[in-house]
Design a protein around this nucleic acid. Structure first.
Lengths: 161, 161
DNA sequence: GGATATCGGACTCAAGCGGTCCTATATCCT
DNA sequence: AGGATATAGGACCGCTTGAGTCCGATATCC
């Protein structure tokens, strides 16, 4: 199975689901709230997984939930202001391109940090990717033919990789 | 333990080593060739792993090798023209942000492709990341304080991944 | 021919991801 | 009040797959 070539820099399936689910919200603006079951149906994803991801998105306050009968989830912000980066972070935790990234100096688990010739540069790489991810919004992702941002190739300043 | 937060969009350790090793080359321009053992010492990485990664880099023709006694590896191109994207691809295969990315139409293993609200948008995300990764060169990574600046527009061939 | 390298695999081990399930809690309806 | 319906928050498990090792074959120098 899976004839797909190994992909690096991969996004976890959870985040994938997250994007998919939020996409469901964004696609039907008139509908405000959906239950987990409804979303599972719409997204053709297994209910338990959908449920799990919805919880994550809620904890990250990308969604808000109401319990009980006729409960469900709804977006807390318009799709235009939700970035893909946020969604991924919500589902999988902080985005970092390598373990070397010293978010906290105490946790420098990289044995060769003193010798590492590419020490500080990871940070810039991380920033570059984070940046790319934060440039794309949920609204743009759901937009069918999508002509968002011209920033991809001709991009402006922040290219400071 | 592992106080390190989970990192998504992670780069494999192999690619990490790849970058580290190529960094060794870039740091000592006068030295042309290194043996696997030398590099293992310099990079403080386990020899078998170093060896493995060097093979990968060679297959991708980022390095060229000479066998036999006094053999070793050397860069095929100046560090300024080698991109981080290339290195990652060399070590881990094609860069793709999700399995959905349909490189080949035949391999659409994504069950909900017909329904997927974010179908085509993955491609743009992929491009954005690839782009970010190809903007950073090996030379820039090794540059200590790194003030890469104009090398962006300055350099030639985009070094197609 | 022997020493030293790389080359190209196969192989093992363990972490972590994908996925499920169960119990507690909150809300609506009758 | 009580039942039905939802979410909240865990624990739990199997299996993939990445990290790392090792070995035999080949090529080169002395």
């Amino acid at each position: 199975m899976s004839p797909i070539s190994k992909d690096m820099i991969r996004i976890s399936r959870q985040a994938d689901y997250g994007l998919l689910l939020l996409g469901c919200f964004a696609k039907v603006p008139e509908r405000a709230t959906f239950s987990a079951r409804e979303l599972a149906d719409q997204s053709h994803a297994p209910l338990p997984m959908v449920s799990k991801v919805l919880k994550l998105l809620t904890r990250a306050s990308l969604l808000e939930s109401t319990r009980g009968a006729h409960g469900g989830y709804r977006l807390t912000r318009p799709p235009e202001s939700v970035t893909v980066g946020e969604i991924i972070v919500a589902c999988d935790g902080p985005i970092s391109v390598t373990e070397c990234a010293p978010d906290e100096p105490t946790t420098s688990n990289c044995a060769q940090e003193p010798f590492c010739p590419v020490a500080g540069s990871w940070q810039r790489l991380n920033d570059a990717i984070r940046d790319a991810l934060d440039r794309v919004t949920l609204a743009e992702m759901t937009c069918p033919v999508a002509d968002p941002v011209e920033s991809f190739s001709g991009n402006e300043g922040p290219a400071d990789v």
